[in-house]
Design a protein around this nucleic acid. Sequence first.
DNA 1: TTGACGCACGTACACCGTACGTGCAAGCCT
DNA 2: AGGCTTGCACGTACGGTGTACGTGCGTCAA
Lengths: 223, 223
Amino acid sequence: MPTELPTEPPTGRLSRARILAAAIDLVEREGADAVSMRRIASELGVGVMSLYNHVPNKDALLDGVAETVLSGVEFTDDPGAHWTDRVRMQARAFRQIAHHYPRCTMLVVSRQLHSHAGLLPVERALATLRGAGFGGEDAVRALRMFIAFIVGSLLREVGVTPTFAPVHAGTLKAEEVDPALFPEVSALAPLLDSCDHEAEFEFGLELLIQAIGVHAGRGEGAR
Amino acid sequence: MPTELPTEPPTGRLSRARILAAAIDLVEREGADAVSMRRIASELGVGVMSLYNHVPNKDALLDGVAETVLSGVEFTDDPGAHWTDRVRMQARAFRQIAHHYPRCTMLVVSRQLHSHAGLLPVERALATLRGAGFGGEDAVRALRMFIAFIVGSLLREVGVTPTFAPVHAGTLKAEEVDPALFPEVSALAPLLDSCDHEAEFEFGLELLIQAIGVHAGRGEGAR
DNA sequence: TTGACGCACGTACACCGTACGTGCAAGCCT
DNA sequence: AGGCTTGCACGTACGGTGTACGTGCGTCAA
């Protein structure tokens, strides 16, 4: 469990932290579509317009949600480890978002954050790569590659149905598709609509780490 | 340019195709946030509720937009080519979405489509991979990897700011970040806030194709 | 004590999705 | 031809949305 993000004071005065906590809670319970200023206010037992004393508008509030969730990921970095292990750890830390805040994942992924919370993972990743001997351009390239992979993977994992959907196990694929039109899809349907997200993520991660390692000519040694 | 999607009849009666065309146009001109049933109706010079004779609700309308955009990608497949070339072509075709319909990209990516339009690219990809000798599991794995990469790359490319933002060239990074807190980000700022999306995409694509090729032990030959 | 200020709150407005009812035109069956 | 069904454009209405603005109350500084 991530570090109990904003240390929400459960009572007393309103605050940005309490509002964000309520918003995150609401998103996780009922989905992003259920979020409205009125809903959050009523959740907090407070007038709607009171929120605007702590948050400029709804969009900024959602940015705050994304930022808070992102800053809640636990990056445990071991500067002594091999760069491949460090990258692995950082990527997995990112994926924790999809576990702890599945309904918020879309928010985090769909707004780029220029705040500290958004820059910190970038800084860590770049430090790791540069420490492993990557040049500036190579490091940025590799980082972008990892981010694209992680973002794409998380979106697949959270299913990204807007409101409902616990996780939609059997997504009405099988026997629904015409085997004449889509022979491969039809034949592979069992494989397609079941997905071990963890295994899939780990597979892609290893593939990427190894590929980037050999690309930069440091598949083995280095530090 | 994609194939003039629904062959919109410019006048006469209302139709699902005309509504979808108007919606796509509106999204591209003013962003997804500008889309409302009233807005689309007034765009078409028609009463709001007339739309509901052709579309069950707004959500389905947006699904239709995503589906239409997706079905507009030009997949030119050469069954005789090497599988690596075919995969390259398919990935690039996908990326065309971000060029022709940048503001719609988020819609396409954020709703999974179980329709023909959504299944066709999957079918094609699986067919080429299986034709190259990939087993069922390997093919599905590889496909998921490619999709994650492509989705992540497209999201980065379209910037994914909800409404405005032409593309935000210099995104207020440089001289904004504290070099003491984020030394790497600060040092690499010029590299970070400029991005040749095409080159970046091609780099990742080659990396992935090569990695998946060697992973499956068919880096060179095969067919 | 008095003034300023922070902040919770109510009201109001423009806009949203859409349920429901109405009326008109075209096509079908006797 | 007369009647009926059906399809479709449209208006009205309801509950919900973000938020601009004004008001009043508490707590501090002078």
